[in-house]
């Protein structure tokens, strides 16, 4: 089943005084199947974050359409957008975005509290999730009291606790050391195996090599994609590296 469908997305940023225009996305189309694990790669400034923000309904495209589970999120009313985001999407950010006024547990509860779920239900959802993410010990602590890896796992728990249709992650391993990054990627793979659809943006080849499919963006367009098929992570790694080097040299289509 097709979960996400992106059609002819275009995004032009107009600077404040209307002078300069930056075309961040020129024409992006792709789709994501239910249960897929997709990585998006590309050089800095190629428009990855812009794309993700549009998918996250945090920003509107200049033109084009985005369907999530058949619903066009571009035309969603402003008043419904928060609820929609809360119910359907989970986010993991590079800099964690945990609130320092809440304990880890309350940070994880935040979207559920906003959705007005009762405490029993929140708690019953948290139990297994915390166990899987190995953050049971730190639930009562505050963000400034735990490590970066733990923070990111807490952020993942916050993204998953609403049981979203799609998890979006923007460079989730960006602020982590390689060990913590590896740990997080394993978690992503594991939750993906349980059926969670994931879309991550990353610069890390290691991170991308865990995905089922890797999309490459260049100059605001999908430039290429690699399907895992039956490849191992190592084979994926090789292939991604190769593609990236071709991409960087501005070379020809490499498929």
């Amino acid at each position: 089943m097709r979960l996400l469908e992106v059609k002819n997305l275009k995004k032009i940023y107009t600077t404040r005084f209307g002078g300069n225009q930056v075309q961040a996305l020129s024409n992006v189309s792709f789709s994501v199947e239910q249960g897929e694990y997709v990585a998006i790669m590309g050089e800095s400034g190629s428009g990855k974050t812009t794309l993700l923000n549009i998918l996250a309904s945090l920003d509107k495209p200049t033109s084009g359409e985005v369907f999530l589970d058949g619903k066009n999120i571009v035309t969603i009313k402003d008043s419904e957008i928060s609820a929609f985001r809360r119910d359907n999407l989970g986010f993991v950010f590079q800099d964690f975005n945990l609130l320092d006024t809440f304990s880890i547990q309350d940070n994880i509860f935040l979207p559920l509290v906003l959705a007005q779920k009762n405490y029993q239900e929140m708690n019953s959802r948290l139990g297994p999730l915390a166990k899987r993410l190995n953050i049971e010990e730190i639930l009562k602590k505050f963000p400034y009291e735990v490590s970066g890896g733990q923070k990111q796992r807490a952020a993942v728990a916050r993204a998953l606790i609403t049981q979203p249709k799609l998890v979006l992650a923007d460079e989730p391993t960006g602020a982590l050391d390689s060990k913590a990054a590896m740990n997080l990627l394993k978690i992503f793979s594991a939750i993906n195996e349980l059926g969670q659809t994931i879309l991550i943006v990353t610069h890390s080849v290691a991170a991308a090599s865990h995905a089922n499919r890797v999309l490459f963006i260049k100059d605001g367009e999908i430039y290429n994609q690699i399907y895992r098929g039956s490849m191992s992570n190592d084979d994926m790694y090789q292939k991604i590296s190769y593609t990236l080097s071709v991409l960087a040299s501005g070379g020809e289509d490499c498929e």
Partner: peptide, 15 residues
């Protein structure tokens, strides 16, 4: 910063 994060996790602007 705090409220920006809250908006990202799905808090209404009016809220």
């Amino acid at each position: 910063e705090r409220f920006e994060i809250m908006e990202k996790v799905g808090m209404d602007k009016t809220e």
